[in-house]
């Protein structure tokens, strides 16, 4: 299948990209890695007038340290994120979840920023961004602004970005001290979307493994129209020191969620999965498996 015709511009700086997007008007779309957008165009589910390709904007790629945070360029490819030494050191949860996205060929093209801006609640990385309290840096004609991940995902495939804004970078606060992490993804076959995924980061009391949980962060994939931060369970997990306590605390994780019912599973099945996977993810992250 062949996409409908569109105009194409490939700016080489972020400033050029912002003005190209404004000039192209409201029917323009940004092309990042294209691993979601190009299939959508091929199926003729979208008819953008212009594609503004960010693939040649080098300043949007790469990972750097900035004080207590990592700054990950929006166009950094999944294959670069998962192998980046800074990401592995300070945001291991992101490295682990990124390694489960699609397959190696898709990870060579797909980008961190593109995945977040696409805002598919079945995508793995939005739940991670929520759990890590990431901040999203958007650039538009009016300048630059920072949006907290909890305010970024507005609805199904809808974000807080305005049509003339470009996601430029993602600031991920470093996890320092003893944090255990785990991304539990449940899917039918290799490379399939998550039926449910749970992103967990857990800090242990006294910063040593084997104690009790001092702080927990839980993000849920595909449990609603947007990725979900499971705050109530985070509170309930504090103090848990064994597997039974983690399971008990995890049992309320699906309360208040409205997951979809589709070929991957019914809503109640997803809620069951969320409880099981949360307990698994937290147990593994906390090193309480024994």
């Amino acid at each position: 299948m062949i996409p409908a015709a569109f105009d194409y511009v490939a700016p080489t700086s972020l400033a050029e990209a912002v003005s190209a997007l404004s000039e192209a008007g409201e029917d323009a779309k940004i092309l990042a890695g294209g691993q979601s957008l190009i299939p959508v165009l091929r199926l003729r589910l979208a008819f953008p007038s212009t594609l503004v390709d960010l693939g040649r904007v080098d300043e949007l790629r790469g990972v750097r340290e900035d004080g207590d945070s990592l700054v990950i360029g929006a166009m950094t490819r999944h294959s670069e994120v998962m192998d980046d030494p800074l990401v592995r050191q300070y945001a291991g949860l992101l490295a682990e979840a990124t390694a489960t996205v699609a397959d190696p060929a898709v990870r060579h093209r797909g980008t961190f920023g593109g995945a977040l801006a696409h805002a598919d609640p079945a995508g793995d990385l939005a739940a991670v961004a929520l759990a890590l309290d990431a901040e999203l840096v958007a650039e538009g004609p009016g300048g630059r602004r920072t949006i907290a991940a909890r305010d970024f995902f507005v609805n199904y495939l809808e974000t807080a970005l305005s049509p003339d804004e470009i996601l430029a970078a993602v600031r991920v606060p470093k996890l320092e001290g003893f944090w255990g992490v785990r991304y539990e993804k449940f899917h039918r076959v290799a490379q399939a979307w998550a039926i449910v995924g749970v992103a967990a980061a857990v800090r242990m009391d006294g910063d040593t493994p084997g104690g009790s949980i001092a702080e927990a962060r839980i993000g849920l994939t595909n449990m609603g129209a947007t990725p979900v931060r499971a705050s109530s369970v985070e509170g309930a997990l504090v103090g848990a020191a064994d597997r039974a306590a983690v399971q008990e605390a995890s049992s309320s994780v699906a309360e208040g969620t409205s997951p979809p019912s589709d070929l991957g599973g019914q809503a109640d099945y997803r809620q069951h999965l969320a409880r099981v996977l949360t307990a698994r993810a937290v147990t593994a992250a906390a090193g309480l498996g024994g």
Partner: peptide, 16 residues
């Protein structure tokens, strides 16, 4: 392979 890395060529534009 594009510049030595595997890609699915049905999901890449020639202009890219």
């Amino acid at each position: 392979l594009v510049d030595g890395e595997s890609v699915k060529s049905c999901s890449v534009l020639a202009v890219q």
